[in-house]
């Protein structure tokens, strides 16, 4: 059990893979935006990889533990401290009763994760504990954590509580650069743009889009030049603006262009769009999108479905018991 002294900027309960199966009624899967970081954190505290933990962004919370606990902090480096002293990330830590966990400056990335031995004890809604703030469901009362919340932990018995410490293998700790390349599959509405523009901006990895200050779990808005649209006789039908189309369902990770502004859809994204989606992030790169923040740069490189599949296979190998060293 822990008590929230300060909720931080946006701290929520998330489990993996989240609330899957309700996209057709507009409920997104939610879950950890950086699924890799939370899953590895869970393995470090001896939990099943999908167990609920805390996701925090840029400014972490301040928590007081009212009983001893095994924790691991993964993801972005938000300068974690235990009782005021810096504490290492990517390894299990035994926390004493009364200990205070706090965070400081965001040194890299955007989102950090707190995995707790035994998980977080909140009610499950539609099969998941994940918080979807816009819909007011999951987690603690469907909202982000705030001062005074008391959250129970240890709902699930950890796989192993042998008192031995666990850390991630050297070299497996992800890096969170401020300029990164994200892989996409072109489409489904890539035929609205002129080929040379599509290639330059969304396929070749040449152009660096800037992340705007409007970025959250719903979507990451980018800024860049105006788009080069095909003339009406060489593109499918549009509305008043070439980017306006009839509503279609869209997948997570679409790069939707509203007017001239692209937004990459995140894990709390919307299931329908009335704008063209010129490209879609591959599944393996969703967790990397989670770690960008305002003024970072993103380059898009288009890959084939075969390459996307290989990338997911490789990622699957990374998140595995084999990644953990028991000391």
């Amino acid at each position: 059990m822990f008590r929230v002294i300060d909720g931080g900027l946006e701290t929520t309960v998330q489990d993996f893979p989240g609330r899957v199966g309700y996209w057709n009624v507009g409920i997104p899967p939610s879950g950890p935006f950086d699924g890799v970081a939370l899953r590895l954190g869970n393995l470090l505290v001896g939990n099943p990889e999908g167990e609920a933990g805390l996701e925090m962004a840029i400014m972490g919370p301040k928590l007081e533990f009212s009983e001893e606990a095994t924790i691991a902090i993964t993801g972005a480096d938000l300068s974690p401290k235990l009782n005021g002293n810096p504490v290492p990330m990517w390894r299990s830590i035994e926390v004493e009763k009364g200990a205070v966990l706090s965070f400081g400056l965001c040194k890299n990335g955007c989102r950090a994760y707190l995995a707790l031995g035994g998980g977080v004890d909140v009610p499950s809604f539609l099969g998941s504990k994940s918080t979807y703030v816009q819909g007011g469901i999951g987690g603690v009362e469907g909202r982000k954590l705030t001062k005074g919340d008391v959250v129970r932990t240890g709902a699930t018995k950890p796989n192993s509580r042998d008192g031995r410490s666990r850390r991630l293998k050297e070299g497996l700790i992800p890096k969170y650069p401020t300029e990164l390349e994200l892989r996409v599959i072109l489409g489904p509405q890539d035929d609205y743009l002129e080929d040379d523009f599509l290639l330059e901006m969304y396929a070749s990895g040449k152009y660096a889009w800037k992340v705007s200050p409007l970025f959250d779990r719903v979507g990451v808005r980018l800024s860049g030049p105006a788009h080069k649209w095909r003339p009406p006789d060489r593109r499918p039908p549009s509305g008043a603006h070439p980017s306006n189309i009839n509503l279609v369902y869209c997948g997570l990770g679409i790069v939707g262009v509203a007017g001239e502004v692209p937004t990459v859809c995140g894990v709390d994204g919307v299931s329908l769009t009335g704008y063209t989606s010129v490209a879609t992030l591959i599944g393996a790169d969703m967790s990397r999108l989670a770690q960008v923040k305002a003024y970072d740069k993103i380059r898009f490189r288009a890959v084939t479905l075969e390459e996307a599949r290989r990338a997911r296979e490789e990622l699957g190998k990374t998140v595995d018991e084999g990644a953990v060293v028991v000391d």
Partner: peptide, 17 residues
């Protein structure tokens, strides 16, 4: 039959509402 990333497929039947 339009791919929407590596996890989704969009099957579109027409262009008028």
């Amino acid at each position: 039959y339009l791919p929407s990333g590596d996890r989704y497929l969009l099957v579109e039947f027409g262009d008028r509402l």
